[in-house]
């Protein structure tokens, strides 16, 4: 399992691995928003939590189709499926690798990007907390979409359509947590909901993803 994780991380940072792609995409989305809605600080500050969360979500989506598609194309997925690691374990490790290469950089970079959107000072802490709690769910849910579309030619768009609705609860509670943090309101409810959604996803989704891969490999 550790070997699979180090392999996936190594592949991500080698040429064509797509490391940093999501981060760059996040930066561009966040920079484009002030151009679109105007540079007025009050407006930006109000929409910043939602924009930051949407940007993180889209950046996460960008690299999802690579999770299994590359392994499927070169035959590794067949071999991994017959290897002693259970497929559920493979899925979990792939989700972790995806989170480390996509979610974790977003969490770390988000405060910097918050400056671009006039995010209120009180919200920075909650932005980091909400992304740290929420992005693992995005990666794990992403494996399910990737598993469903593995083997489909140009399944990327279908993948987005399948996965984005699943992201709705995380988006709602993630953005709400930051908004409440910014306004100095009670944050406990969205915090617990966000953590609960992530925990449930981590517990359940790998089994669904593994089942989807088994069907697709037949």
């Amino acid at each position: 399992m550790i070997a699979l994780l180090t392999r996936d991380l190594r592949l991500a940072i080698r040429a064509g691995g797509g490391f940093g792609l999501g981060l760059a995409f996040f930066l561009i989305v966040v920079t484009l928003v002030p151009f679109g809605v105007g540079p007025e600080g009050g407006v930006l500050a109000r929409i910043a939590p939602g924009i930051l969360w949407l940007g993180a979500l889209l950046a996460c989506l960008l690299s999802l189709d690579r999770i299994f598609a590359l392994d499927f194309e070169d035959g590794s997925l067949d071999l991994l499926a017959t290897a002693p690691i259970p497929l559920e374990g493979v899925v979990s490790v792939k989700a972790v690798a995806h989170w480390i290469t996509t979610g974790l950089p977003l969490v770390l970079a988000a405060p910097v990007f918050g400056v671009l959107l006039h995010l209120p000072q009180a919200a920075y802490f909650w932005l980091v907390v909400s992304l740290a709690l929420g992005t693992p769910a995005l990666s794990v849910l992403g494996t399910f979409g990737a598993a469903l579309t593995v083997g489909l030619k140009r399944g990327g768009l279908l993948l987005s359509l399948l996965v984005l609705p699943l992201y709705v609860p995380t988006l709602i509670f993630g953005a709400e947590l930051v908004r409440r943090g910014a306004n100095g309101m009670d944050t406990q409810v969205p915090l617990l909901m966000l953590a609960g959604i992530t925990a449930a996803c981590i517990a359940v989704v790998p089994f669904a993803s593994a089942a989807a891969i088994r069907v697709n490999l037949r």
Binding site: R7, R14, G17, L80
Partner: peptide
Amino acid sequence: MAYAAHADGLKSTLTVTENLSFWAAVY
């Protein structure tokens, strides 16, 4: 059982040693 399919399941950006070490670690 060890299964070898038509496709070799190699990662083109990894070296020969890295490819082989990965499968050795998996098994």
